[in-house]
Design a protein around this nucleic acid. Sequence first.
DNA 1: ATTATAATTGTAATGATAACAACTTTGTTA
DNA 2: TAACAAAGTTGTTATCATTACAATTATAAT
Lengths: 145, 145
Amino acid sequence: MLLKPSFEDLKKELKNRNINLSYQRLSVLEYLTQNRCHPTVDQIFTDIHKEIPTLSKTTVYNTLRVLIEAGLVRVITIEDNETRYDIEVKDHGHFKCESCGTIYDFCINMDMLNSGDLNNFKINDKNVYFKGVCPRCLSNKNENK
Amino acid sequence: MLLKPSFEDLKKELKNRNINLSYQRLSVLEYLTQNRCHPTVDQIFTDIHKEIPTLSKTTVYNTLRVLIEAGLVRVITIEDNETRYDIEVKDHGHFKCESCGTIYDFCINMDMLNSGDLNNFKINDKNVYFKGVCPRCLSNKNENK
DNA sequence: ATTATAATTGTAATGATAACAACTTTGTTA
DNA sequence: TAACAAAGTTGTTATCATTACAATTATAAT
């Protein structure tokens, strides 16, 4: 998988896997490549719905499931009540600002995490989630003092 | 916070913070110290309910919120549809077996994760979640071949 | 072109969590 | 110890995200 796969890369990838490139699926896929802000289902649905008024939320859920199974999309569950989705990219961590809610990506070497405890485990997926306050919110707080 | 806080440690900690030690709260707290298997609300409620038939699920939710705010309990959201709770212990990662569902703790040095990308961020909380197959399930699979 | 398969849609069901008001317990003051 | 206030508990109801399902529509294959 490429570091920042383009829409065209992803279309090819789906074709290779014999996944139908329906209008709705392409639309969700394109949305995710252009909005790498870890959107929720609701954000995805609401935005695309403006372009495709007939779009159903169920289709968004179905499409995301297909894309996840194909390994093109990754689920982010930092908070239990807000599932987010991301075009799959190389290993990186997620930082959620508890003040403004923004989710930031950050570089991380996942290999550093290999613990002896997991010697005999088959690891399929690694997630690193941090929480705290982002620089912008930190400086806003200082201004308000 | 201690590595493996005992029930008594935790009681003291609550007293220090002026949190009422009601029968129900102590019961939830004791349950968590004795069941360090990352239980869900439902597991906690069902088990304690056997001892305290009048216990309400709302109380379990309320109690968990209080304990989380006090920093004694940590939320684990590996999967978006199953929130789990854990007595707060020193930095460690969580591995969920996709085959049997068991969640394993593993040692990890969270400091290793410090990325230059987060230099100006205030980090309050670090979570590491892995998924895969545990040794037991791996060997079962081989036997069935 | 026809048929079979797959995808989409809208509605209804499910299930976890939160809101709420009534009731009970606890702690405090006299 | 009695009376009061504050806090905690309870059960019900509401909410919201997600899934199940059946009908319809689109796509692919022969």
